[in-house]
Each structure stands twice: as structure tokens, then as C-alpha cells.
Design a protein around this nucleic acid. Structure first.
Lengths: 229, 229
DNA sequence: GACTATTTGTTCGTATGTATA
DNA sequence: ATATACATACGAACAAATAGT
């Protein structure tokens, strides 16, 4: 822990992307065994400050900034208002049969086809959230033109106004796939948010599941306002 | 990882509270070095399944169950309605000068005294949340009789109806103190929730900060209803 | 209370495998 | 093809906490 403290203090002398001196060199410099040094670096990895690459070295990660995200408005609007470049990239679009719980929440027949869109939300060039939107395939026309950007804005252009019905917020460590796509260590917690939204008629329309880096993302709710996206 | 899988599979053969065979014995049985065995056990510790005690051994923890908590009503009510014994224990009560951000949120003069109450919320004998309530010391009379149980109910008996103003939800790993009080490993994420509530006149009254085991607690928001505790 | 055996905690030395440049 | 750097494993020793005598 002492060694980890020293190393953590020295991280500021590197630029993000820099590689630390090799384990052998650092171990020699501090007069400890390479194992001992590795265990100290393990702490920094658990904290998400550095990343080890076999055969290459240990590189320094950018210090994350925490962005509070207001639940009352769309992601993009809040964030761009704060002067950050917000971007949403469409990663995948596919059609598949609904899972039992999806069918229940979206009021579909079991196995009825759903349209699944997966987007990656970036903030200041840094991945923040991985969002999976799930709609009944009946609505595929409304989602035809979507190729990234704000999902809510896109639906508004199609004259569909969504209203949040329920939100479930939890935290966990990311799956390996999620960790890779969010460029984060597996040991750093993520906020996992699941929302169900209905259209103007009150019928369930969209089920969204998102995974967000908790070290860069906080969920804010201002009461009195309605929270939508 | 292979060894960890084997060990995890065998955990079912122990009762919670049992101690595993010693590291030397297990290492010998699997034909690996003690280090290797320790690294496998590290995985189970990270998963929160076992706990190591120096000089004593490695004991098996009870498998946690996840209880969804509806944010729209008081903790206690929702949970007791589900048939779980919910309990809130008063850990500490003290008066101290307000921190700058507390003074800001509660609209106090800098350094003005605040009353801090810390409670531990248990569910089925298991610690779930650690809550720090913070009030202006001017309200000490209203909190005189409180010795545990639902804070909201207590204030209602004093004719104080709180209204949630804002909620900020994040996730992180617990501090050592928090991990100890929640009887959880430091590597398992916690939900950290910060709320500001005002009284009927709209003046800020209570600032609460809570830390909850994310493996046993989820935050649910049902729209349309007001979310209060 | 002192002593001893047991068990986990930590560090070192050494060797070998594997990915990368 | 080679050197470098991280990944993994083994063996040994000692420290520190615990439990029992």
C-alpha cells in the first residue's frame, strides 16, 4: 500500500497514454522484488488509473471527470449545455425474438420480434455509457433513419413523444464485453439503469438498458420536474 | 481462474460461517503452490463469497439475495410489506460545524452547527445501507426522541412532512469504514445516494447521504408518483 | 500469563511462458 | 529472429494474528 501511494503520487508526472518504466526497472529503483512492485501496481489497476498490456508495458489512463446527468432531460441536451462534446455512436442494430421479461414489459406476445439498437455515448472523446434500446419490431419504421445521435430527438422528429414510466438503478462491475467497450477496468463499478417508456397513448414503447462508468457519471433527479431520458 | 471455478463450485458443500481447509492443505490437495491457491481464493474474496482472517482461516459468507426497493415509499414500509424484517439502528448522533457544501445546501451560515445522525439499515439481519442524516442544529428538538426506526415516520409524528428536492445517485467502491460496517468486501460496488429534502414551507431541512450494498439494493423510480425516501 | 502450534500475510529469489516491438 | 515486458508458477522464509495448552 505504501508503494502504491508513492506510485499514485507520481502518476501526475506522466501524460495519459504514457507508459510507466518496466516492472524490473521500477522494482530495482524502489529496492523491492518485482512481485512486490506488481502488487502495488495491482492497486492502481483496481483503481482504474493504469492499464497493463502484456509484452508492451503499463500505461497511464486519463483521470476521469464526473459528469452529473440530469434525469429530467435528454442526455445530449444537458451535456452539450455544459460545454462538453457529446456524441452517440450506433454500434449495432438487429432484430430478434423478445425475451420473456422484455415481452412482459413491452406488452408483447412471447417471442414476438423486437428491434434492438445499441449505442455508445461518448463525452469529450471518452466513452461514458453503453445503451441498449429495445422496441417492438412493429415500430421499425420510426427507427429507420436513426444512425446515431440523440434517440429522443430522432423520435420527436417522427412525432413520437416518450414518457418515462419506471426507472431501476443499480450498480455492479461490468461484464468483460462492457468493460472493453467502455475502455475501463473490470473492477471499477458501473451504474446500470433500466428504463421503461411509453408513448403518448400510454402504451409501453421503449425498454432501455444502459451501463455507465460510475467514475464519470452520476444520475441526478430534480423533483417536481418529470424525468425523461 | 480454473481453480477459483472449482473452489466456487465447492462452496455449496459448506455452511455459511464454516472455515475452509487451510491454504497449505488446499494447495497440497490441488497440487499447486500456496501462492496459486491464494490467487484463486482472491477471486472468491473479490466476489464477496469468502472472507480471510489472519491467524484464523478463510470463512464462507452467506449468499446474498437482491431485494428491490421501491423509491416511491419509505424503505421500511416497502420492505416489511414484502415480508422482510427491516430495522434501522442508530449508530451515532453528534453535533458539529457544517462543512461548506452542507452549509450551502441547507442554507446555513458557514460553520453553523449541524446535527448528524448515522443509522444502519438492516434487512433480514443483513446490513444494507449506511445513512448519514444531516440537519441544522436548530431542529434538534424534532430529533430528540429518535433512537432508530424510520426517520420519516419519526418526523411525521413531530408534524414535519419532508419533500424530496433533489437526488444524486452514483456508484463506487466503499471506504474501508463503510465496508466494515456493511460487512462487505471493499471491491463490491455500493450505490451512493445523496438527497436534499425540504419541509412544508420549502426550506431545506435534511441532507442525507447513504451508501448501500449494490448487490442487495436497487433504486426504483415509478414516474407519476413522488419519490420520498 | 506464557508458551506453542496453526493459519494467514508478506516478501524474496528463481524460472518459464507469452505477447509485443 | 531477438530482445523486452508482462503473466504465471514454484519454493522458501519470516511476520503477525489466533487458538489452544
Amino acid at each position: 500500500m505504501q508503494l502504491a501511494d508513492v506510485l499514485r503520487g507520481e502518476l501526475g508526472t506522466y501524460k495519459s497514454g504514457d507508459y510507466l518504466p518496466s516492472e524490473t526497472q521500477l522494482a530495482q529503483r524502489f529496492g523491492v522484488n518485482r512481485h512486490t512492485l506488481r502488487r502495488a501496481v495491482d492497486v492502481l489497476i483496481l483503481e482504474g488509473r493504469v492499464l497493463r498490456h502484456k509484452g508492451r508495458g503499463t500505461c497511464v489512463l486519463p483521470t476521469p471527470i464526473v459528469y452529473p446527468v440530469n434525469a429530467a432531460s435528454a442526455y445530449s441536451k444537458t451535456l452539450s449545455g455544459m460545454g462538453f462534446r457529446s456524441e452517440a455512436i450506433l454500434l449495432a442494430r438487429r432484430q430478434r425474438p423478445a425475451h420473456p421479461d422484455e415481452a412482459r414489459d413491452l406488452a408483447l406476445a412471447p417471442q414476438e420480434p423486437v428491434l434492438e439498437l445499441q449505442t455508445l455515448r461518448m463525452l469529450d472523446e471518452q466513452p461514458i455509457s453503453l445503451i441498449t434500446h429495445c422496441f417492438s419490431a412493429r415500430h421499425h419504421a420510426a427507427l429507420e433513419g436513426y444512425g446515431g445521435g440523440s434517440m429522443r430527438q430522432h423520435l420527436e422528429r417522427k412525432n413520437i413523444a416518450l414518457k418515462r414510466v419506471s426507472t431501476l438503478i443499480g450498480a455492479r462491475t461490468p461484464s468483460q464485453r462492457d468493460a472493453i467497450r467502455l475502455l475501463m477496468p473490470r473492477h471499477t463499478p458501473v451504474l446500470s439503469i433500466r428504463t421503461l417508456s411509453s408513448d403518448a397513448t400510454g402504451k409501453p414503447f421503449e425498454l432501455s438498458r444502459s451501463v455507465s462508468r460510475a467514475d464519470r457519471f452520476q444520475y441526478q433527479i430534480i423533483s417536481g420536474e418529470r424525468h425523461e431520458d
